[in-house]
Amino acid sequence: AVSDRLIGRKSVVMEAISPQNSGLVKVDGETWRATSGTVLDVGEEVSVKAIEGVKLVVEKLE
């Protein structure tokens, strides 16, 4: 599936994300709604860990 190619990809937070609120990330020039178990600020680099419905699950790059 097209979405499977996103797992493991680097992306950049475009709208802040917290455990309570989804935000936005940009992956390969496309904007996606995303969630995370931690707070992520605009501009942080993250990695796509999973896809749940139409949202990406991301975490901060170490």
Rank of each mutant, 00 (worst) to 15 (best):
R9T: 06
E52W: 12
E44F: 06
V2C: 13
E30K: 10
W32H: 07
S3M: 15
W32I: 01
G8P: 03
K49S: 08
V42S: 04
V12K: 06
R5I: 07
K26N: 11
A16Q: 10
S11P: 05
E59L: 06
I17H: 02
A16L: 09
W32N: 00
V57Y: 09
K26A: 11
E45W: 15
A1L: 12
E62C: 12
V12A: 02
V42C: 10
R5H: 10
L56S: 02
E15D: 05
V42E: 06
V42A: 07
G37A: 14
A34W: 04
V39A: 11
V12T: 09
G43Y: 04
R5N: 08
S22P: 14
V2S: 12
G53E: 04
R33V: 15
S18A: 06
G29I: 03
G23N: 01
E30N: 08
G37H: 14
S36E: 03
L24Q: 06
P19I: 05
V2T: 11
K49A: 08
V13E: 01
S18G: 09
L6D: 01
E30P: 00
A50L: 06
A1W: 13
T31E: 09
A50S: 10
L6W: 07
L6S: 01
D28R: 05
K60D: 02
V46P: 02
S18I: 07
A50H: 06
L6F: 08
K10H: 10
N21D: 08
I51G: 02
L61M: 10
S3I: 12
G8L: 05
N21R: 15
G37I: 11
K10E: 06
S18Y: 08
E52A: 09
S3P: 13
E45V: 15
I51P: 00
K10P: 09
S36R: 00
S36A: 11
T35S: 09
V58N: 02
V2G: 12
V39P: 11
M14Y: 10
R9D: 03
T31V: 14
I7N: 03
S3V: 11
D41G: 12
E44I: 08
M14D: 03
V12I: 13
G8R: 05
R33S: 12
L6A: 01
V54M: 14
V54G: 15
W32M: 04
I17L: 04
E52F: 11
R33I: 15
R5L: 09
M14C: 10
K49E: 06
V13K: 00
L6H: 03
D4H: 15
I51E: 02
G43I: 01
L56W: 00
E52S: 10
L40E: 02
W32K: 00
A1H: 12
I17P: 02
L56E: 00
V57F: 09
E52Q: 11
D41H: 13
I17E: 01
W32Q: 00
A34R: 00
T38I: 09
V57W: 09
T35C: 13
S18P: 02
G8C: 08
S18W: 07
K55A: 13
D28Q: 06
S36N: 00
S47K: 14
R9Q: 09
D4C: 15
E62G: 11
V57M: 06
V57T: 05
V58L: 03
G23C: 03
P19A: 06
G37F: 14
S3Q: 11
K26M: 15
E30L: 09
V42H: 02
I17C: 05
K55T: 15
R5W: 10
V46I: 04
A16R: 15
N21K: 15
S11L: 09
V25G: 00
S3F: 14
K60W: 04
S18N: 08
I7L: 10
V27N: 03
S22A: 13
A16N: 06
V12M: 09
D41F: 13
E52N: 11
G8A: 03
T35L: 08
S47E: 13
G37P: 10
S11H: 01
A1Q: 12
T31L: 15
T38C: 13
K26S: 13
V58F: 00
R33M: 14
R33L: 14
E59S: 08
M14I: 15
V25A: 03
V46D: 01
V46M: 01
D4I: 13
I51W: 07
S22D: 15
L24T: 10
S11W: 03
L24R: 08
T38S: 14
E15R: 09
L40M: 09
E62Q: 12
S3H: 13
V54R: 13
R33D: 08
A34D: 01
V27M: 08
E15W: 07
E59P: 02
L24N: 03
L56Q: 00
V25P: 01
V27E: 00
S11A: 15
I51L: 07
R33Y: 11
S36V: 01
G29W: 05
V46G: 03
Q20Y: 12
A34G: 05
G37T: 14
A50M: 07
A50V: 04
I17S: 01
M14Q: 07
S22G: 09
S47Y: 15
V48M: 03
V58E: 01
R5T: 09
G53D: 06
T35G: 05
G8S: 04
W32G: 00
P19R: 05
K55H: 15
G23A: 02
S36P: 00
K55D: 08
V27S: 03
